[in-house]
Design a protein around this nucleic acid. Structure first.
Lengths: 186, 186
DNA sequence: TGGAGACATGTACCAAGGTACATATGAAAC
DNA sequence: GTTTCATATGTACCTTGGTACATGTCTCCA
């Protein structure tokens, strides 16, 4: 039911259409909770049927914006305050790490270098966003303050992963050096 | 298809039954790739039909252990070396963080304290495992070396999350203090 | 000897998510 | 004027994962 609450949370900031919400998921929520437009439109229909949101306005190109209702706001607050946090994580790169011993040393070295670069790039990207926020580029409204906190999590997680990948590459290199016969001295 | 490759990877260490594999997922792979026994038995059936594993032995209580075939080993190695890494992450606690601005300050403070404790506890648990491994408690076979690397990722990720939750609690407290009127001086 | 509990495998069904496909509308560029 | 592109919403279908249910087997202990 997290998609449902994600949509309600976004609509708590103000009215938005399925299209708007799809882009918000793509751009900001996607990294922690991916959602594609077919699921989003379907869930919006269910939320409206349940009275948690209602049509706010209809615009050009069949655009239909929704507004959160009092019941919807109460429901997202109930979720945040009462529902148990689901700490389940699903992250393929770490599943792979259990099987690193099956990889050729060269393939593994390349893999870890590329992973480190990937995570370091994302960390830098998010660090840039936090700096823009701290300069006040997006104002200081409560949702922006909350996003600042989310961005900090992104920076720290991706920095941790980048550091891990570099550490793992070092360690794998050491193991390889110890396992291989000493270089012949001419 | 990650469950499929996860099973192949585990079977690359040696023969195992669906029951064994279910426990391995629960105990070690679960935190990054959850899988329940119905899915595992079903996937084992498919893997056997595809010739990537075969029955190794039948034991008491209808136990059926599988062994990886050459084709299976080739497939898991192909996956590791060639398939694009899927960096998709799905993590509800961070989805919630985008909506922290909707929470009562007291609820948020409690939530962040409990999150910090949760992650710090997991980090300590994994740190303990890494120390046991580094003492050689589990030997130095290649799969153990790989698991040492995976555990390090766990330690670093959970330490990052614990640090983030403490930082967020601090920051939320500061925002609250600034937003509330000064305490009356009697 | 009978019951509890761990071992061990499976089916049925439901929920959630993803891809592909389909279609309509308005603005801008050429 | 017509093509192109972004906007905007939806359906159909397939894959994956989870829960609940069902069943058989072996050991141990009271």
């Amino acid at each position: 039911m997290s998609l449902r609450h994600g949509l309600l949370g976004l609509l708590a900031e103000g009215p938005a259409s399925g299209y708007d919400l799809t882009r918000r998921f793509e751009e900001v929520l996607g990294p922690v909770w991916p959602a594609r437009h077919p699921k989003i439109y379907a869930e919006l229909g269910r939320l409206a049927a349940d009275g948690l949101i209602e049509v706010d306005s209809e615009g050009p190109r069949r655009r239909k914006a929704y507004r959160i209702t009092d019941a919807g706001l109460a429901e997202v607050r109930r979720w945040l305050a009462e529902d148990r946090v689901d700490h389940t994580m699903r992250f393929e790169p770490l599943l792979r790490s259990f099987f690193f011993w099956l990889m050729e040393p060269d393939d593994l070295a390349r893999h870890l270098a590329s992973e480190a670069e990937h995570y370091a790039g994302l960390a830098a990207l998010y660090r840039g966003f936090t700096e823009a926020k701290d300069r006040g580029d997006f104002g200081y409204a409560p949702p922006v303050q909350a996003m600042r906190i989310s961005l900090e999590a992104g920076v720290r997680l991706y920095e941790a992963l980048a550091g891990w990948a570099r550490w793992a590459a070092d360690r794998a290199e050491t193991v390889r050096a110890e396992a291989s016969p000493p270089e012949p001295v001419d």
